[in-house]
Amino acid sequence: MNDLFVHLRRSMVNDQIRSRGITDERVLLAMEEVERHLFVPHDLEREAYHDSPLPIGHGQTISQPYIVAEMTALLRLRPGDSVLEVGTGSGYQAALLAIISGRVISIERIPEVARRAEENLRRAGVEGVRIFVSDGTAGYPEAAPYDAILVTAAAPSVPTPLFSQLADGGRLVAPVGDRNIQHLVRITRQGDEFLQECFEPVRFVPLIGEYGWQE
């Protein structure tokens, strides 16, 4: 079975990600290393490497592998970067961020989802991730500033507190739009200026919180 998952993982990287233009070798190697099937419900393990999102319970999903890869690549991570993730979900995205950067703080608003993510990360043998249960739209100022911030749920706009938690030269990536369709945006801080770029349309579950959507 392990050999099967290794094959599926390599095929996922080559056929779904590399072939569609993702060239960041750190991202590709991390996705080949992290065992995605450990981050989905047991009955969905064989579907973990399909080109689609999957439900993980509590109305949450693990995103399509290509979108995970694209968002990670847009962050332009470097080893040693301090990373904030808003929306832990399954823990899979946090695992990739930790493999590349080494240290991740991830915020999850649903306690049961956070607990399962911690279990998934332990099973996968991934270290360097600290998960806190709170309103992720407020960020985590205690450990700011961050070299990279990734928002993994759909926001009506980038949550205001995250701007001040981004380091000079830092990058923030988020899906921004309405509840039905969003676009990936990347914001790069240059001193007191925040430069915004817009990328492809996506569809995520809503970001719930004080600076997101109301539940």
Score class of each variant (00 low, 15 high):
residue 12 M to P: 01
residue 166 L to T: 10
residue 188 T to N: 07
residue 199 F to K: 13
residue 114 A to C: 09
residue 204 F to L: 01
residue 62 I to V: 07
residue 102 G to C: 10
residue 97 L to D: 00
residue 10 R to S: 10
residue 209 G to L: 03
residue 200 E to M: 15
residue 208 I to C: 05
residue 195 L to G: 03
residue 136 G to L: 00
residue 54 L to Y: 06
residue 160 T to V: 11
residue 3 D to F: 09
residue 102 G to I: 02
residue 13 V to P: 03
residue 136 G to Y: 00
residue 149 I to W: 06
residue 158 V to Y: 01
residue 130 R to D: 11
residue 155 A to K: 00
residue 151 V to W: 01
residue 16 Q to D: 06
residue 164 S to G: 06
residue 140 Y to L: 07
residue 41 P to D: 11
residue 196 Q to W: 08
residue 19 S to F: 07
residue 172 L to E: 08
residue 49 Y to E: 06
residue 15 D to C: 10
residue 126 V to D: 02
residue 207 L to P: 01
residue 65 P to R: 11
residue 90 S to C: 09
residue 203 R to E: 06
residue 189 R to I: 06
residue 154 A to V: 02
residue 2 N to Q: 15
residue 114 A to H: 06
residue 4 L to D: 13
residue 1 M to H: 15
residue 186 R to V: 14
residue 186 R to I: 03
residue 126 V to S: 04
residue 179 R to T: 09
residue 206 P to D: 08
residue 3 D to K: 14
residue 89 G to N: 06
residue 4 L to H: 09
residue 93 Q to S: 04
residue 200 E to R: 15
residue 2 N to G: 15
residue 143 A to T: 11
residue 38 L to H: 07
residue 135 D to H: 08
residue 149 I to F: 00
residue 196 Q to C: 09
residue 1 M to C: 14
residue 127 E to L: 12
residue 94 A to S: 15
residue 2 N to Y: 12
residue 145 P to N: 02
residue 71 M to L: 13
residue 170 G to A: 07
residue 179 R to D: 06
residue 172 L to D: 01
residue 12 M to A: 08
residue 73 A to H: 15
residue 75 L to K: 04
residue 149 I to E: 00
residue 32 E to S: 11
residue 142 E to D: 13
residue 207 L to H: 00
residue 172 L to S: 06
